[in-house]
Design a protein around this nucleic acid. Structure first.
Lengths: 294, 294
DNA sequence: TACTTGCCTCAGTTTTTCTACGCGAAAATA
DNA sequence: TATTTTCGCGTAGAAAAACTGAGGCAAGTA
C-alpha cells in the first residue's frame, strides 16, 4: 500500500559528461569534438546542468568560456569519476574479448610501419584479431575504446608506455631523381613534397644543414603521407621521410637517400596501452611481435 | 583537410548505470525500482551492454539472475565509479545552493517529529529553506539528491551519522478510552491500531509483557501512522506509539499512556548526511536546531 | 494444479539528444 | 580600419534513445 514515490532525480548522465569535457577542456567546441557532437549539443547539456544546479558553471565570453570558481572547484571530482568509469569500461572490454585488440595510430604509421608487422603477429598468434583505426591525434585511453595508441610524442614515458623508436628524418626520392642531386643546394630546383601533418619537417631539416641556407620550403603538400610517398616513388619530387616509415622501401631500392645528413627529432614513437591490456595475457605476444626492437 | 573520423564509441552511460544497479542488487527488478523505470527497460540496457561487450554478464534463471564471474569481477569498479560520480553531483548541489536542504524521512517522522522543529529552524535561520520528501526506505545518499536521511536503523553509526534518539514504544489512546483500561488484559476488548510500516510493534510490545499472554494482535491496519494516530485521538482504539512521535500530544493531553510499560527497541533514529553537507557552513545551525538533544 | 515471481520480447510512444543554421561579439588579420 | 575567423547562443525540426505496457515463458510454491 505504499504511496507512489515522486523521487527527485539527478541530472542526466550525458549532461554530466558534457560538463566534465567542457570544463576539462575549457571550451565547448573542444568538448563537442571530443564527444563527437556539435557544439550546440554541448551548449544545451550545460544549460540543463546549470538549470538543475540553479547556478552558473561557465562565464561566457565572446571568445570561449571561463570556468566559474565553483566549476573549477568541482571539476577534479568529475574528471576522476569519469576516468574511473572509463577504466571500468576498458576493463570490461578487455576481459570480455581479450583476443580482440584495437590500436589507434597515425594513418602513415598504420600503413607503413604497423601493417607489415601485423602479418607477423597473425602468423605467430592467429587467435589475436587486431583492428587499427587511423587518426591524427591520440585518443584518451581512459575514455575511448582502444587498447593501444601509437603516436609520436616528446612527453616523458608513463607507466604503461613503451618507447618503440626514436624519430629521425631525412630526404628521400626516386633513384632517377637522386642522379641530379649532387649537393644539398640542388634542392633549389626540385619539388619538395610535404605532408600536412608534419608541415615543418623540411624546415627543421634544412635549418639543421648549414649548406642549405636560403633554400625555400615551397612545394606540394599532401594530406596523407602515403600519397606524398607515392609521388616521390614516381619521381614527383623529394620527400622528407621518417626513418621508420620508409626503411623497407630504401632496402628494396624503390627510394634512395640522396644525402647522408639525417636529423634526429626530439620525440619518439610511443606505444601507450590501457592498464587492463598491459596486464592481460596477450600483452606479451603483442609486445614481442610489434614493439620490441631486435 | 583531416579525414572524417569514424571513432568507435563506448556503451551508453545509462546502460552502464543499469548494469551497475542490476549487478549490485543482483536483480533486474530491484534495479528497475532503484532507477524508477520498468524492468523491461533494464532488460534492454543490459542487452545493449552485453551486445557491446560481446559477452554475457548475467545468467538468467527462471527466478532471478546470477552474475557471471566476469560481471562479478568488474562490479566493484563500476560501483565505485558511480559512487564517485554521485558524490561529485552531491557536492555540486551542495556548493551551488548551500542554503537549500533536502531531507528524506519516513512520512510519520516528517509530520510528527520533523515538522515542529522546522519551524524553530526557520526562526533561527530564515535563509535556510528545507524541503522534506517522505519515503519508506532511506535513499542512497551517494546517488540521490538529498542532504540528509532520517530513518530508524540498528546498524552501527558511520562517520557522517548522528544518533538522534533511541526508539521506544508503548500504547497510547484517547483519555476516555484509557478510563476503561485498568490492566493490560483489558486490551482484549479494544481495537488495536496498527501501522503497516511497523506491522509487528504490537507483537513486540505484547511479548515483552508477561501479563499480556494470549492477547491477539488483531485490529485495524493503516498505511500511514498519522492516520492511525488520528483514529486513536478520536477514541477509535489503542495505538502502539513511538515515543518521539507522540510526545507533544501526550503533553497536550490529547493522548494518554494507559500503561507505564514501555519497550526500548534495538534501533535508533539516525540522521545520515552527505559528506559535502556535513562539512558545509550551514550544517551547524541545522544540527543544533534539529538533532541535538537538549 | 493453480499461483507467483522474475525476466523476456515486441510494438508503440515519450523523452532526450542532436543537427542545421542564422546571429552576434570579440580577436586576429590585413 | 575593414574584413575574416573563431566561439558560443538560440530555435526548430529530426533522429535516436529510453521507456511503457501487455503478453509469454519457465521454475518454484501453495
Amino acid at each position: 500500500m505504499a504511496v507512489a514515490p515522486p523521487r527527485p532525480k539527478g541530472p542526466h548522465l550525458n549532461a554530466l559528461r558534457a560538463f566534465e569535457a567542457a570544463a576539462r577542456l575549457g571550451s565547448f567546441t573542444a568538448a563537442a569534438e571530443e564527444l563527437s557532437v556539435t557544439p550546440g549539443a554541448i551548449t544545451q547539456h550545460i544549460k540543463t546542468m546549470e538549470a538543475w544546479a540553479e547556478t552558473t558553471l561557465f562565464v561566457r565570453n565572446a571568445r570561449g568560456v571561463d570556468l566559474t570558481p565553483l566549476a573549477e572547484e568541482l571539476l577534479p571530482a568529475f574528471v576522476s569519476a569519469f576516468d574511473q568509469l572509463g577504466q571500468a569500461v576498458q576493463a570490461l572490454r578487455n576481459k570480455a574479448t581479450p583476443e580482440k585488440i584495437k590500436i589507434a595510430t597515425l594513418p602513415a604509421v598504420a600503413q607503413l610501419w604497423l601493417a607489415p608487422r601485423l602479418g607477423i603477429l597473425r602468423q605467430l598468434a592467429p587467435e589475436i584479431s587486431v583492428s587499427v583505426v587511423a587518426m591524427e591525434r591520440p585518443p584518451n585511453l581512459m575514455r575511448e575504446p582502444f587498447d593501444i595508441t601509437l603516436f609520436f610524442t616528446s612527453d616523458p614515458l608513463g607507466a604503461d608506455d613503451l618507447e618503440v623508436l626514436q624519430d629521425r628524418i631525412f630526404p628521400v626520392c626516386a633513384p632517377q631523381v637522386a642522379e641530379r642531386l649532387s649537393s644539398i643546394r640542388d634542392l633549389h630546383n626540385e619539388t619538395l613534397l610535404h605532408d600536412s601533418a608534419w608541415a615543418n619537417d623540411w624546415d627543421m631539416w634544412l635549418s639543421a644543414q648549414p649548406a642549405a641556407k636560403g633554400i625555400s620550403t615551397k612545394g606540394t603538400t599532401h594530406s596523407l603521407f602515403s600519397v606524398a610517398l607515392e609521388e616521390a616513388r614516381h619521381g614527383g619530387g623529394v620527400l622528407m621521410a621518417h626513418d621508420a616509415l620508409v626503411r623497407p622501401l630504401l632496402i628494396r631500392g624503390e627510394l634512395v637517400q640522396p644525402f647522408s645528413e639525417t636529423l634526429e627529432l626530439p620525440h619518439r614513437l610511443v606505444a601507450r596501452m590501457t592498464s587492463s591490456f598491459a596486464h592481460s595475457p596477450v600483452f606479451d605476444k603483442v609486445n614481442k611481435t610489434l614493439f620490441s626492437r631486435l
